[in-house]
Nucleic acid binder design. Structure first.
Lengths: 142, 142
DNA sequence: CAGCATCCATTCAGATACTG
DNA sequence: CAGTATCTGAATGGATGCTG
């Protein structure tokens, strides 16, 4: 397989932001990682991918998650434009959370993360000296 | 393998590991995030996607990265099966690092992270109430 | 050259207690 | 019900000094 000649990295856009010499918040990769950063974050997103949830429903779906961290994650994800809060008036208070379109687009991202992580158990990666065989991760899932 | 029916969330496999109630190391998503965890990690991978590098070359490409953290990242990535160390005998010592096939497969993952993060600046995500578009961003311009 | 050992500042997660 | 405030322990990142 012929390696690229003038290209930088396969799979990476030819964008000036791809050439940063240190972690900067304006890098798209950093933006996404910042949105997903921290424990529990992806699980909260996964729950929301199933549909709208209230605070309590999320807490029930993830029993080991403290309300403080849940609050943190929800704020973080709202701040990243992943979800929106829908606070309804009256008593008792009921707030539901749902993904934005942008939040839904996290689906493919999580899928990519899943695929890479799932491929490790099956394929060899201990005796990997040669990188010429560039097999795509052909998991049928999804 | 025929598990096409996605009952839970769009984009997530119908795997028992997709139903975990707390962050567990065996979850594929966690595996990938663990491999990419920490500051500088994706930048080190990006450098290596360009080709083989020595320790010093990596340090030069990322000047603000301390050797301690670089060592940490390299160990972490080697542990995740992303790269291999090629230590050559003689003096001065020269160690080069290169991606494994598995490491190269991180390209699409980084691409997915990039795409999502890059889409934020352009599209609306403030007034997002309704989800309709589920377009995969496959801009592979680089 | 390519690291490892040690110390220190900052961040993070979880627990507990309290409120509109 | 849906949070906020405060505290503690653990993990992380970075600086400095030393070695095969």
């Amino acid at each position: 397989m012929a390696h690229q000649t003038v290209r930088y990295a396969p799979g990476l856009p030819d964008d000036s932001r791809a050439a940063v010499a240190e972690p900067t918040p304006s890098c798209p990769v950093e933006i996404t990682l910042a949105a997903l950063r921290g424990r529990w974050t992806t699980l909260v997103v996964r729950e929301l991918l199933k549909g709208e949830h209230t605070f309590t429903q999320l807490a029930q779906a993830l029993p080991a998650l403290s309300d403080k961290v849940l609050t943190d994650r929800l704020a973080q994800l709202a701040d990243s434009g992943v979800l929106v809060r829908d606070r309804r008036p009256g008593w008792p208070p009921r707030t539901s959370y749902r993904l934005t379109p942008r939040g839904h687009r996290l689906g493919p991202v999580l899928q990519a993360l899943w695929d890479w992580g799932a491929a490790g158990g099956d394929t060899d990666w201990g005796a990997a000296e040669n990188d010429s065989g560039r097999g795509a991760a052909e998991d049928d899932s999804g």
